[in-house]
Computed example of a mutant assay.
Amino acid sequence: MSGTNSELELITGGPVIVLVEPQLGENIGMVARAMANFGLSELRLVAPRDGWPSEKARAAASKADHVIDGAVVFDTLEAAISDLNFVYATTARMRDGFKPVRSPIVAAKTLKVKHDAGEKVGILFGREKSGLANDEVALADEIVTFPVNPAFASLNIAQAVLLMSYEWMKQSMESEDETLFAPTQQTPATKEQLFGFFEHIEEALDSRGFFRPVAKKPKIIDNLRAVWSRRALTHEEIRLLRGVVSSLDRFSRKNPRGAGNPEDFDD
């Protein structure tokens, strides 16, 4: 499936996701997919309306089978969270009570600190139509509320799980000082390589009459060099740019590379 790579090791673990009386298997499957996207893997279901296991959930999970296969069903919320040390209850509406209300960012930071300290943490999500009841929220340590449009605060359960899972992954990435899409390590270009590129492109431009009027040539060259020096080019980038200039030098629109040109070459 697009976006997946079976050769990479799955990121797993993180907070336990607890769904209280979820109604549709499709929604559970989409929750599993959202969890897998951001490295969460432990799913607990409290009295799912349509029973478990669910083929509809598996189909909607889009290959997040490790989450579906590991899901555990409980009869009560108390049983589902009995082994957890710290729990957030999610809600999109204001609640009367004495529990601290956190943003998703603060909640994710708190969960990461506690998780790294060896505590078992979880996040509660309520029913598709009505969310969590007050007595269920009362079982949590704190509340996390999403900053949504107050006139349209309806999130489906998979969206809510996705938001929290994303914030969790962000915290994990920041704490390890890494990104998911870290660039391949490249070698910074030396000044000698950069100066060589300057000479290469300036000669190519000069031979085509680019520097007009001639009196302004030094200023134009200064401006060009300022542009190319704006960021630290790498050795690989310099090679690529010089390859571009060489190609423009050797070939034209009417006589392109690969069209039987006697000057055709392979790098």
Rank of each mutant, 00 (worst) to 15 (best):
G243L: 14
K99T: 02
L162D: 02
S82A: 15
H115T: 11
T234G: 02
K114I: 03
D135E: 10
P104M: 05
E176I: 03
F197E: 07
K63G: 06
S6N: 13
A160D: 06
V121C: 14
W168H: 10
V113D: 06
P48T: 00
Q171A: 11
G3T: 13
L43E: 08
A71L: 05
T110E: 14
R225W: 07
R253A: 13
I81F: 14
E21T: 14
K219D: 13
P22T: 11
K217F: 14
K170S: 04
L77N: 06
P213Q: 08
F98E: 13
A232W: 00
S130L: 04
N149C: 00
V161W: 05
K217I: 08
A61W: 10
L111N: 01
K63D: 15
P218K: 10
T91Y: 02
V20Q: 06
Q23H: 07
V161Q: 03
S130F: 09
A259F: 07
V137D: 04
G209P: 01
V244C: 14
I143Y: 10
L240F: 15
E128F: 11
P256V: 02
A71P: 02
L205G: 13
V214Y: 09
R231W: 01
D69T: 01
M35S: 09
N27S: 01
D69Y: 07
E128A: 12
L132K: 01
D75Q: 12
A117N: 13
D83W: 12
S207F: 10
K99E: 02
D264R: 04
N85M: 13
D266L: 08
V148T: 10
S175L: 02
P53F: 12
G51T: 00
F152V: 00
T234A: 01
P213L: 07
A107Y: 02
E136R: 01
W228Y: 13
L19M: 15
A107S: 08
L8H: 04
A117P: 04
A259T: 09
K56A: 15
T234K: 01
M164Y: 09
A226Y: 05
P262F: 14
V16R: 02
A226N: 06
F210P: 07
F125T: 06
P147F: 03
S130E: 02
I123Q: 09
S130C: 03
E174W: 03
T184S: 04
G39R: 10
A47W: 00
D222N: 13
Y88E: 05
A133N: 00
P53R: 09
R239L: 15
W52A: 01
I221A: 11
G14T: 01
E119S: 15
N5S: 14
A92F: 00
R212N: 05
I220Q: 09
R95M: 00
E26H: 00
D69H: 07
D249M: 08
A160Y: 10
G13T: 03
K217T: 12
F198M: 13
F38H: 09
K109F: 05
D177S: 15
N156A: 12
A36T: 03
S54H: 11
P262E: 15
P213V: 08
F197A: 10
G122R: 11
S54E: 12
Q23R: 11
A138L: 06
D222I: 06
G70Y: 09
K120N: 12
R33A: 04
G243C: 14
P218Q: 08
S6Y: 13
W228C: 00
